[in-house]
Design a protein around this nucleic acid. Sequence first.
DNA 1: CAATTGACGCCCA
DNA 2: TTGGGCGCCAATT
Length: 127
Amino acid sequence: MNTYEKIYETVKQVPYGKVATYGQIATLAGLHRKARLVGYALFRVAPDADVPWHRVINAKGEISESPFREGNDYLQRSLLEREGIEFNASGRVNFRQCQWQPEISPEDQPSFDRPDSHNSPQTNCSD
DNA sequence: CAATTGACGCCCA
DNA sequence: TTGGGCGCCAATT
């Protein structure tokens, strides 16, 4: 499997209604600190590919535009909004609300005092 | 084989 | 807070 294919497979794991950053995808794909590769790879995603490319945004929480994607940057935002993701006046998303949090092993989780049942839902969206 | 081509992210003024 | 510079790398031609 190619490096780019690994990136695509990772992007495919981003669930509906959530977003991930290029850096996040890079790390998950085993390419720590190589966010640019993710950008390079996504640029080459075939239009018919089964990859939710629109769920990948930059570390600032905004959509990375490209002169070659005129209109598509708007498309990306539309697709995200369709999934319930909201943008503030600065064109950024609220990470706390919609950033994808991949499988985190309960053991890796910082074990403060985790009330078994009622975990704190992350509905804190005070932006 | 070498040149070209790109959707980033961090650091420092 | 914002903008510019720089490191980084695979696929294609």
